[in-house]
Nucleic acid binder design. Structure first.
Length: 291
DNA sequence: AACAGATCCAACCGCGAAGTT
DNA sequence: CAACTTCGCGGTTGGATCTGT
């Protein structure tokens, strides 16, 4: 690049506006999209319509101005379940996951997941603290303490695992792979000292040629909504069930755990999110990465 | 009522892929 | 085909709001 061009670029950078959007800016952006469609973001700036980068314009449109968005509506239990299932399947592919959730953006999904993660982290930490407060389980006095000291997998870097690695890792963490209904808590009886109670989770189905589940997202998501979906899909022998240890303190934290089982829906309510344990399973490194 | 911590979420950044010149 | 630009994605940050003490 020559000097003239470089200087111009710097001037442009200085002229870039950042921060919260004003109503007038939104209107300009909306008008642009009406005229030209959701594209040519950079031209918005080059035409002098806004002092925002094309990138910023696109983000604003996608996350806030698109007409089909569910703004201000919390994730429903069904949406939560979908995110959790798809995250287990795709990993942190938020944009992809968002395509399964009408009205939700990748940012929404990402934020949702992130907040659930933090919440779970705190709950897990609180539940294992030696003399944790008996007060509200939603608060903690130890926000700076790494929450997952007791779970080796969570100290490992995020990895994208192959199905084989994933399965191996899960098996290593929880050698006992059983086929029990989705969401069922299995308490070995009697409970050995080194064996926590387990909550079981499904493996996603291994792709089979005549099995439409993973072929078309819409088909998949439509089936997710069916009341019998989980029972049907996860009850088949093609599926394995991974188990993840839960701590005894979970049992005392107000869940509907009754004796040996817990209904999966009770795990997806606002006050008790242990289904986030999916993530602990999914983020397991392969055994070769364990130290 | 005041404060602290938790939660939510809008917006930014860096990077890589795709498209264009 | 290389250089450059634009776009899209995932991660992160910081401010506003909520909630509990």
């Amino acid at each position: 690049m020559d000097g003239k061009r470089r200087m111009l670029h710097d001037d442009e950078l200085r002229d870039i506006k950042k921060g919260p959007w004003k109503v007038e800016e939104d209107q300009v952006l909306i008008n642009h999209v009406k005229k030209y469609g959701p594209r040519d973001w950079s031209s918005i700036r080059s035409k002098g319509l806004l002092r925002r980068t094309g990138k910023s314009c696109r983000l604003r449109w996608v996350n806030k101005l698109r007409p089909d968005l569910k703004t201000g509506v919390k994730f429903s239990a069904e949406e939560e379940r979908t995110v959790i299932d798809l995250q287990a399947q795709f990993g942190n592919k938020w944009a992809k996951i968002a395509t399964y959730l009408p009205g939700r953006t990748d940012n929404d999904v990402k934020n949702f997941w992130s907040s659930r993660q933090k919440r779970l982290a705190r709950i897990l930490h609180t539940s294992t603290a030696p003399s944790s407060s008996t007060k509200s389980h939603k608060t903690t006095k130890h926000p700076q303490t790494p929450p997952f000291d007791f779970i080796p997998s969570l100290k490992a870097p995020k990895l994208s695992l192959s199905r084989e690695e994933e399965f191996a890792a899960k098996s290593q963490l929880c050698p006992t792979i059983e086929t029990v209904p989705f969401g069922e808590v299995v308490y070995p009886n009697p409970v050995p000292v080194d064996q926590q109670p387990y909550v079981s989770f499904p493996q996603f189905p291994i792709l089979q040629p005549d099995y439409p589940l993973l072929l078309e997202g819409q088909d998949f998501i439509g089936r997710l909504g069916a009341p019998s979906f989980l029972d049907y899909e996860f009850g088949h022998s093609a599926l394995g069930t991974a188990q993840v240890p839960i701590t005894p303190s979970f049992q005392a934290s107000g869940t509907s755990v009754s004796h040996d089982t817990v209904d999966i829906d009770s795990l997806i309510d606002d006050d008790f999110p242990p289904i986030d344990l999916f993530d602990q399973i999914e983020q397991l490194p392969s055994p070769s990465h364990w130290s």
